[in-house]
Design a binder for these strands. Structure first.
Length: 205
DNA sequence: TGATGGATTACA
DNA sequence: GTAATCCATCAA
């Protein structure tokens, strides 16, 4: 191993509170569609009644159903009429909390990722949640996959990171009361971390 | 049944 | 700066 400055590559404890799980995923690997990436940026979303920014804030609906189940499953959502984004369900079952996978560095399978993200420079292959999903070929068909099952088409693999490099800040594109919570986590200095944008006030008239 | 507004990205 | 473009959710 590299040394004691690094977290050990211990088994995931996805059932822990989401604010603990989210930073622990930095440096971990996600593998799907012939591509493996190292996570460099994530965001935490707490569930029912706790987080106005969460899709599950208003409770159980067909879309959020998967979040109310056991941790370690994949929650995919479709947004802006174009894009899919990938999340890991975390926390005790029933809490409906999750971690949005915002960005990563492709460490193997670059060829497959480049085909899916045609024209993008390597650094941008997974720089942003929808780009990440596209590069790995993830969409609604992957909803509910168990990320810890080695036989799954989408897998989360243990990794490590230097805790000193973990930075936090407000979540991207989140409006309202939850906007100020510093629930975005990234590895400082990584070129694959996506740029921060405040919530866009819808263009009116 | 209709309205509304996105946990975004690409491009002018 | 803004178009693209589907659908979950909410109001009635």
């Amino acid at each position: 191993m590299t040394g004691d400055a690094l977290d050990t590559a211990a088994p995931f404890e996805l059932a822990s509170p989401v604010l603990e799980v989210a930073p622990s995923l930095l440096g971990a690997f996600l593998e799907a569609g012939g591509v493996r990436l190292r996570l460099t940026e994530v965001e935490a979303y707490a569930g029912v009644g706790e987080d106005p920014g969460s899709h599950a804030h208003r409770g159980r609906t067909p879309r959020t159903e998967i979040m109310f189940g056991p941790p370690g499953r994949l929650y995919m959502y479709f947004t802006y009429g174009l894009h899919w984004c990938a999340n890991v369900v975390t926390g005790p079952a029933g809490r409906a909390s999750e971690v949005l996978l915002r960005a990563g560095e492709v460490v193997s399978g670059q060829e497959a990722a480049r085909v899916r993200r045609q024209g993008a420079p390597d650094r941008d292959l997974c720089r942003g949640p929808a780009r990440l999903a596209t590069a790995l070929g993830l969409d609604g068909g992957s909803l509910g996959v168990d990320l810890l099952d080695p036989s799954s088409p989408v897998r989360l693999l243990a990794g490590s990171h230097d805790p000193v490099r973990v930075h936090t800040g407000p979540r991207v594109g989140v409006a309202g009361e939850g906007a100020q919570r510093p629930w975005r986590f990234w590895l400082d200095g990584e070129p694959t971390v996506s740029p921060y944008r405040a919530a866009v006030t819808r263009t009116r008239n």
